[in-house]
Amino acid sequence: MSAAAQQDVASATDPQALVREDLRDFAGYRSARSESLQGRIWLNANESPWRNDADGDGTLRRYPDPQPQALRNALADLYGCAPEQLLAGRGSDEGIDLLVRAVCRPGGDAILISTPTFGMYAVSARLHGTRVVDVPLREDAQGWQCDFAAVATAVRRDGVKLVFLCSPGNPTGALMPLSAIAALARQLDGQALVVVDEAYQEYANGPSAITLLPAHRNVVVLRTLSKAHALAAARIGSVIADPELIEVLRRCQAPYPLPVACVEQALQALAPAARAATGEHIATVLGERESLRSALAAAPGVRRAYASSANFVLVRFDDAQAAFDRLLSAGVVVRDMRAAPGLGDALRISIGTPEQNRQVIALLAGGAA
């Protein structure tokens, strides 16, 4: 075994050691659906014995399975992990909230973020009474870079228990090197969980951080069906991690997090034909991404259009308000990023259909859409 491989295997501290001490033996709420029982007449959950007129087949009066095995199996197959490594929930947002609640003591521990980044990490922490430590991304000629050495130093100095790395980044579009994430996980073994938010991974070129899990038990990966799989309204996200940590998070989760209708829609979206169609849509986005970025970079008044590994492009303008207004006046809504740290001149533009992208380019180039 190589020295690097031996180092990887050494990063294997039980992640339960990082869970709040008062929650390590927490049993959570055991709902009526938590028991694996079979029967013909169900009188164990105080449900109505009559169906609602809006319920065609009579199933909506029954509480849903908290973690439907068919969904866990389908998601595990999609992401290349074992079902016991995966917890399904209400989008990635619930995963973020569960991690903060399970790991960080209110008023004691801290999370670490690298701005500009997804705002929900800080929101969840502050709602939980948890400190937020910011090690900002560095901008250079290549784009946005994470200062991994500074992150490791801040974890040890500031009592950080959760490190949130958004890769590909939102709103930057930047992809973090897996080798650097693995090295950070090794350094922080037994000190912090390294949470890699891969909401946009389907648009990235390269392997997922899920591949790090066998050697790094303190790595956690967040995934979602909201972006590439076009199910934002269904709210299906996944936490993928060491099975023992997944079991802790499951005990901290609400009793019935997954509505039946959303589960059914997710299973349809994960069927082979639907996955093939999703692959075609992703290919279209990838084909449009660089051409859109290049055209935006050449548009008058654009300071910089960043390379992206996601399904959007971050753009700096001489006058971001004028660009925003010009687009909006033509019915094109983009994300104003000027309130984000370091982005006082930026807009984030999602990649649309080829025709929608042409309209954006024409509008920002000063022509008629």
Score class of each variant (00 low, 15 high):
D325I: 11
N205C: 00
Q85G: 11
V334S: 10
S350P: 02
E94F: 09
F317L: 05
A305N: 00
A209S: 05
A295I: 02
F317V: 04
G366W: 03
V334H: 03
A32W: 08
V313Q: 08
V103I: 09
I96M: 03
L213A: 01
F164L: 00
A209P: 02
R72G: 15
R90E: 04
G190H: 00
F324W: 06
A199T: 14
P136K: 04
V302H: 00
R335P: 01
A269T: 09
R138M: 11
A141E: 10
Q356F: 13
V163S: 09
T115F: 00
A339Q: 08
V248C: 04
G58T: 11
A339T: 13
A228F: 00
I210Q: 09
K227A: 07
D318T: 03
D14S: 15
L23F: 07
P168I: 08
H229Y: 02
G80Q: 03
L245D: 04
L188F: 10
H229L: 04
T117D: 03
E355G: 00
A340W: 14
V239F: 08
G206S: 00
Y203Q: 13
F118I: 13
Y29E: 05
V263L: 09
V132L: 09
A4N: 07
N73Q: 11
S179A: 05
C252Y: 00
D97C: 09
P354V: 07
G89V: 05
A298W: 02
R157V: 08
A102S: 11
L98Q: 11
G237D: 06
R186S: 00
G89Y: 06
V221G: 09
S291F: 06
M176L: 15
I111P: 01
L193W: 02
G367P: 00
R138K: 07
I349E: 14
M120T: 15
V263G: 08
D8Q: 09
L212P: 12
Y63T: 07
P214T: 11
R250C: 03
Q268H: 12
